[in-house]
Amino acid sequence: MTAKKELLGSLLFAWGANSYGQLGLGHKEDVLLPVRVTQGLASIGNIKCLVGGGGHSAIITDDRTIWTCGSNAFGQLGLPQHLGESTLPLPIKTLNGKAVEIAAGLRHALAVTAEKGLVFQWGVGMKSLANRGLQTLPVPAFMSAREPCEVPGFGHVKVKHVSAGAYHSACITDQGWLFVWGSNKYGQLLSSDDFLPLPFFIQPHHFEGEKITLVRSGWTHIVARTERGQVYTWGRADYGQLGRKIKSTQDSMCKSNVIQSRFTPEKVPELTGASQITCGSEHSLAAVGDSILSWGWNEHGMCGDGTEVNISEPRQISFFRNYIPAAIGTGAGHSMVLCRSAGQSGGDFKACPEEQAVCQGNPETATT
């Protein structure tokens, strides 16, 4: 079954912060509850993958073209000829290859190409931190680009998936290796260096030796899923964005023990077997079975529960109990879900696991 037939009849919903037009609705007003998108992002073709950044969103359509909308103040739309924001999606025409996955950070974005598994980055969000962190060393060209620019260091491997934080990026290869680069201010890159200008390999012992099949980044935290479906989180945790309690030694009064537990990858049992995971700045969504779970920062209502109260552990979004998720996406303060009604035939990504792996990952098929 082709992806076009598979997604026929699916519905696109979006909600949350929209001050730059990042929801693709043609306006810039915030949306507190999920609203069906009937123009913009929903009118340009069948959707393969969707993501959101600080004030911008990006999707891949079935012809492998990337479309972006929202803020372009730092070149994060990948459209150097377009000044200012866009409330409706525009295509990127300068990517060297067909896109199979995308990721959006605070002020940058990434893509993986189908042919060689290369990584491209654009947006200048990391540049100032790179200047300070590298001092007299040159800043890599891909950190200063306003259109897709290749990230060096992957000539010997094939990258399958990418992820972007506020000022860091991550990717995994077809062998299940995890690489990271950028800012390490909150220890989210598991390195002793403050800034990593080039891809850095994270050792598998952090995940009990298992291969990584999916990686997602918040602004300053990371979520990773292993080949057995275990989900690990680490990094900053003050909005509940790790989805778990922060551990410390029972008899210790030393704050550093609490900080160390945040910087150590640990499992979140409620997310075991998640087929899809996506992170906003400090909130996340996950598809576990036919349920959509959310947790973390909720100031703009992006956790989808009708409140603006932070959620510290994964919780099902009741609005979607009669829907089956096909794809999920998040921006800094907004969320999107592509789904179908539970009684509707077609549109379920479970029927086509290879396409699910392309969009958000599948623990059964992914080398993702």
Rank of each mutant, 00 (worst) to 15 (best):
A357I: 05
P265E: 11
N18I: 06
E355K: 13
P363W: 12
G40Q: 03
D238L: 02
I44V: 14
R132V: 13
A145T: 04
N18E: 03
S261P: 00
V337T: 00
A166Q: 13
F74Y: 08
Y167I: 05
E355F: 12
D194S: 13
T233I: 04
V180C: 14
K28I: 10
A224E: 07
F201C: 11
H108Y: 04
T61F: 15
K98D: 11
P269S: 08
C171Y: 02
A286H: 09
R146F: 01
I60T: 03
I259N: 11
M253L: 08
E313D: 06
G361H: 06
N131M: 15
I328L: 14
E364Q: 08
Q276G: 03
T365A: 09
H283L: 05
A286Q: 10
T113Y: 12
G306N: 09
M1E: 07
P269A: 11
F120T: 02
K5L: 04
E85W: 11
L129N: 12
F320L: 08
A286N: 12
P353A: 11
I47M: 12
S252R: 13
S256F: 04
K267M: 03
L50H: 07
S341R: 12
A42R: 15
N362P: 04
T87M: 10
S318N: 05
H334W: 14
G105F: 04
V288F: 11
P265A: 12
G329Y: 09
G97Q: 10
T61V: 09
P199D: 07
C49A: 15
